[in-house]
């Protein structure tokens, strides 16, 4: 098997073995189903008047701004800082450091895409079952929103991996990432000019795609996301390559 493919498979397998990943996958299914059930059948009668798409995008926001970043922080900490602590990060195997680094980043990103697609599926099925206002015509825009959300998530993954490599303690890594993420979420309220410089700002960029999107905005945002990814990935790899077993 090709080394990149083989090790990506290994890294995904390692993450899937963790209880926390199973919990995230379970919540990916349960949160949309329970939300729809509550909204339509229990006490939130007024919400029924809301277009079903709004609830779907609220669920997407919950995942891309809270649950998926949390998953990324846990996964990056486990695959880099945690493995460094346990001594499993570097072993005598025929795999180059760049391949090892890349496959770990790919594994986290692929699982994030899987979580997004699973959530989309759970949202759509629960909408079809529970929502009175479910409209099949909403499917293309919703699947598009879920898929474009993956790109800023990849950038956040590279950012988390870079941070994970700066520290030697898993506890410090995960708490540092959460504090920094909260800081990034709230700093624009104090310094509005910083808004467009933070990778966290672009997590909900799908909203722009749903409205009338300008070519200039696409170029600017895609350039920012690509350059941020390149910067975080390069610094991360530099740190990773300097590490010794």
């Amino acid at each position: 098997m090709n080394t990149i493919k083989a090790n990506t498979f290994n890294e995904i397998q390692k993450l899937l073995t963790k209880k926390v990943t199973k919990l995230f996958l379970l919540s990916t299914i349960l949160v949309p189903v329970l939300t729809k059930l509550l909204v339509n059948h229990l006490f939130l009668i007024d919400w029924v008047a809301l277009p079903t798409e709004n609830i779907n995008f609220t669920l997407l926001d919950l995942f891309i701004t809270i649950l998926i970043p949390l998953f990324i922080f846990i996964a990056a900490t486990d695959l880099f800082t945690g493995e460094g602590e346990r001594g499993t990060l570097f072993q005598v195997r025929p795999i180059r450091r760049i391949e090892l680094f890349l496959t770990k980043v790919i594994a986290i990103s692929v699982l994030c895409l899987f979580i997004l697609l699973l959530e989309w599926l759970a949202v759509m099925i629960s909408s079809a079952v529970f929502d009175k206002a479910f409209d099949i015509a909403d499917i293309p825009s919703s699947v598009g929103a879920f898929i474009v959300s993956w790109f800023p998530i990849i950038v956040l993954t590279a950012f988390a991996v870079m941070l994970a490599l700066f520290v030697h303690s898993s506890v410090l890594a995960i708490s540092g990432m959460i504090v920094l993420y909260l800081f990034m979420m709230f700093i624009p309220y104090v310094l509005p000019g910083s808004l467009y410089l933070l990778p966290s700002t672009y997590l909900d960029w799908y909203m722009q795609w749903l409205s009338d999107v300008s070519f200039r905005w696409i170029i600017q945002t895609v350039t920012y996301l690509c350059s941020s990814f390149a910067l975080f990935f390069s610094i991360g790899y530099y740190m990773f390559n300097r590490k010794e077993a």
Binding site: K14, T17, K18, R86, G87, T88, Q91, V92, A245
Partner: peptide
């Protein structure tokens, strides 16, 4: 190679 203490993914 086996260098230092044996390492493995212990949950597996």
């Amino acid at each position: 190679a086996l260098i230092g203490p044996a390492v493995a993914y212990e949950k597996m």
